[in-house]
Design a protein around this nucleic acid. Structure first.
Length: 540
RNA sequence: GCCCCCAUCGUCUAGUGGCCCAGGACGCCGGGUUCUCAACCCGGCAACAGGGGUUCGACUCCCCUUGGGGGUACCA
């Protein structure tokens, strides 16, 4: 049976690279009717965020990924939080020490740092010098009593280590250059490289699919696996990584970096107000602008909101907030480094599972291209069943705190219909929100007013439109359209000359849903009042 | 510095020695349709990083160069 896993460390929201790794593991387990495990790698106490695990879980669920074993659903191989498996790791560390495959060390971080610096200065490779004789238990007890830090290192065989990778074939490493890695930290927790091996083996993982940034860790993990006597090695699959448009691995750093660039390019920023908006001090802001420190994501987001700039989406939630569908994300991510081979691109989860195969994973890194993502979303907006789309839309509106949320499901459905061909849920919201806000709160786009409202005899035309709307019967989309068409014919102008001024008069901008339908949704009274308002406001 | 991985249109990719003067998709450009935006329809531009081999024949195999990415932690 194929058993795959996704093992994030809970440091924040799930970002797009992690989501892709999770997705491939999930697809493969589903395709092979095997198991998919979610494990949380939280052995670094310093880095863990208390809410991060929940964020990762909800992001995965939003994407449509489920798991057979995990911290929230349980399973026979738990616990699924590494921080709760300390005793298990200790047992295996003990085993290695007893077999002389691992040994105690008493170096302080400062000493190790000095060794590294010396090596860098000499431009030589840093390999830990294994002692002639391994410290025994009495020495350990003594060191502990003296308050020295105690770690455990694995004895790396000084020979060629060949890793068989599904994507890359045989990759050769020199064990002597790898050196003895620490497997148990002085705080008693295992290091990543050790914990992964123990957990993957104990949880029965047969296929390890992860980013190529882990390829260098693999020879050590493989040797550890063998030294621990865990039997058949798992399949290793080191996928290409997703790189960002600015170059480099797609990472959380991109959002702060983008904000920093925006701030530097902008003129007349009140830095005090900006810091206040971001809930940070002016010193912290300056330090951030100098590239020395990075505020937390909520502070970054708050500042971006204050400046009215859109930061590049990096985390799964960013895409949700920008109005993308989970179907889109899954589909698009799956096509980064993989393709079904028959030219199909737009696919449902079912189709992805059906056609997925690790043998078709490609070696080269790929760039995350937002304009193609937008095109994918446009397709999925069309494909998702209407009732499901309404649910998504409502979730989006809620998160965006949009006034459109006041609408009932029927209206939401109608709005979605009217916006057939829209690229994102955000577009639908933008085109319809004017219907749900008070007339006094309509914001007029300066350009639109100048170009459409104050152009020619638009205001005069609007007076005619007003009279027409006042008496058109019945007050429905058809009749309104008919009335406006007749008006256009009478004045011998195109419909655009009538509809555009009306649009700007009612919604303040040149972009909205069908204006005939919008008029009806507003209702006669409302529409007339808003029209009067506008007329009064812009008539000289 | 050292180690590892990678290299087809701007981007995602198809391509496993002849089917390829390289196919699809997004984007872009031109045109059409339209009450706006989007969508839609028609047409167009656009790539095998460079240099050596191997072979009757290389996008496909080998080597070098260049370029890109990753790693080099008591992070994961």
């Amino acid at each position: 049976m194929v058993v795959t896993r996704f093992a994030p460390s809970p440091t924040g929201y799930l970002h797009i690279g992690g989501a892709r790794t999770a997705l491939f593991n999930w697809l493969w387990s589903r395709k092979k009717k095997g198991k998919f495990i979610l494990r949380i790698e939280d052995t670094d106490l310093k880095r863990n965020t208390p809410t991060a695990m929940q964020q990762v879980i909800s992001d995965l669920r939003w994407l449509g990924i489920d798991w057979d074993e995990g911290p929230d659903v349980g399973g026979p191989n738990g616990p699924y939080l590494q921080s709760q498996r300390k005793d298990i790791y200790e047992k295996y560390v003990r085993k290695l020490i007893d077999e002389k495959k691992a040994y105690y060390c008493f170096d302080t971080p400062e000493e190790l740092d000095a060794m590294r610096q010396k090596a860098t200065a000499e431009k030589s490779n840093i390999v830990y010098q294994r002692p002639e004789k391994f410290p025994d238990e009495s020495e350990v007890a003594k060191a502990k009593a003296e308050g020295k830090s105690v770690t455990v290192r694995f004895v790396m065989p000084a020979e060629e280590i060949v890793v068989k990778d599904v994507i890359r074939g045989e990759v050769r490493f020199n064990g002597a250059e790898l050196g003895d890695l620490i497997i148990l930290k002085s705080d008693g927790f295992p290091t990543y490289n050790f914990a992964v091996v123990v957990d993957d083996a104990l949880m029965g993982v047969t296929c390890i699919m992860r980013g190529q940034e882990h390829l260098m860790n693999t020879p050590a993990q493989q040797e550890l696996w063998k030294a621990l006597g865990f039997g058949d090695l798992p399949q290793y699959v080191h996928m290409s990584v997703t790189i960002s448009q600015t170059g480099g691995k797609l990472s959380k750093r991109e959002r702060p970096a983008a904000l920093r660039n925006v701030i530097k390019k902008m003129q007349d920023i009140d830095f005090n107000k900006l810091a206040e908006a971001g809930s940070i001090t002016i010193e912290q802001l300056n330090s951030f602008l100098d590239g020395k420190t990075t505020p937390d994501m909520p502070n970054i987001d708050a500042m971006a909101k204050y400046l009215g700039v859109a930061l590049p989406e990096i985390n799964v939630v960013d895409f949700f907030r920008s109005g993308y569908l989970p179907e889109t994300m899954m589909n698009f991510l799956a096509l980064l480094g993989w393709s079904p081979g028959d030219g199909r691109e737009i696919m449902t989860a079912g189709q992805l599972i059906e056609s997925f195969d690790i043998s078709r994973l490609i070696k080269a890194n790929s760039l995350f291209d937002r304009s193609k993502l937008l095109a994918f979303n446009t397709e999925h907006m069309r494909m998702v069943p209407k009732d499901k789309l309404i649910v998504y839309f409502r979730e989006y509106l809620k998160a965006a705190e949009s006034p459109v949320i006041k609408a009932d499901d029927k209206t939401l459905g109608r709005l979605l219909e009217l916006c057939a061909g829209a690229r994102t849920l955000a577009d639908v919201e933008k085109k319809s929100r004017f219907i749900f806000i008070d007339s006094e709160k309509i914001e007029f786009d300066e350009k639109a007013v100048k170009k459409v409202l104050l152009d020619g005899d638009s205001l005069l035309i609007l007076k005619g439109v007003r009279d027409g709307l006042a008496c058109v019967e019945p007050f429905d989309e058809k009749s309104v359209e008919q009335m406006l068409m007749t008006l256009a014919q009478k004045r011998n102008v195109g419909l655009g000359k009538i509809a555009q001024p009306l649009r700007v008069a009612l919604c303040g901008s040149t972009i909205s849903i069908s204006i005939f339908e919008a008029v009806c949704m507003l209702g006669r009274e409302n529409a007339l009042a808003r029209l009067d308002n506008t007329l009064k406001k812009f008539s000289r």
